[in-house]
């Protein structure tokens, strides 16, 4: 079945596109490093979010051309960025005052596991190696809406949406919405509530790839994204 899944599931770009549709004009947004950074590319026309990066910059734009990088002008992923009109610089304590103080509207992060009560595990597999937390624990405890974008299952076919996280937690009860390669799921009253799913997957199959019960509140709509 997981081979069949590969033919219908959304690509990372498509997951990022879907997440971008929910960002309103003028919202202050932090995108996690790596895959979540892709969300910035898919802002709907006529809307402009202001992007925050932990290392002290609001209002950055896309990457410069190769050879035009200024290495004092980078994002949290240590990638060179550019400035948009109205951008500002600030030190790290002010940057995290924005984060913890509830001034940012949206944070979009990746995940190893998300539990039905909104617990997030995304910083350590708990299997040794070198731990690295960065700003994730601050973001999940301070930003108004914390969303996750992720494949619905791991490469080995295990559910990433689970009853209880088995990996070390990043935050407790912090995630409110999950955009996966198969569905859009809200977390409400410590339950997964299914909002959208791909038309090509049955409810039973989707449930079988999900580690906790999917609840249905209102109509479930088709998850429709463009070819990207």
């Amino acid at each position: 079945m997981s081979e069949q899944l590969n033919s219908i599931k959304l690509s990372n770009a498509q997951i990022a596109w879907r997440a971008a549709q929910d960002i309103e004009d003028g919202e202050y947004v932090n995108l996690g490093i790596g895959f979540p950074e892709m969300v910035a590319k898919f802002q709907p026309e006529g809307r402009e979010a202001i992007f925050h990066t932990e290392n002290g910059l609001l209002g950055f734009g896309q990457a410069p051309k190769e050879g035009e990088e200024d290495w004092d002008l980078i994002n949290a992923g240590k990638k060179a960025v550019t400035l948009k009109p109205g951008a500002s610089f600030f030190h790290h304590a002010d940057s995290f005052a924005m984060v913890r103080g509830g001034h940012l509207d949206v944070a979009i992060l990746g995940a190893y596991q998300v539990a039905q009560n909104g617990d997030l595990a995304n910083w350590s597999t708990g299997k040794g190696g070198i731990p690295a937390v960065g700003g994730a624990m601050d973001l999940v405890n301070g930003v108004k809406k914390v969303a996750v974008i992720t494949d619905h299952i791991t490469k080995k076919g295990h559910p990433k949406l689970v009853e209880t996280c088995s990996m070390p937690l990043t935050g407790v009860g912090c995630v409110t919405r999950v955009y996966t390669s198969l569905a859009v799921i809200d977390i409400k009253d410590a339950q997964f509530v299914l909002r959208e799913k791909l038309a090509d997957i049955s409810m039973d199959d989707l449930q079988s790839f999900t580690g906790a019960k999917l609840h249905i509140e209102n109509d479930v709509t088709d998850l429709i994204v463009p070819q990207l």
């Binding site: 932990e54 995290f96 070198i130 937390v133 700003g135 601050d138």
Partner: peptide, 20 residues
Amino acid sequence: YLAGKIELEIVPQGTLAERI
């Protein structure tokens, strides 16, 4: 680190900034 020759204290980034 993996050879046990350096001690590591991991601190969330915002906590690190605020502690300083």
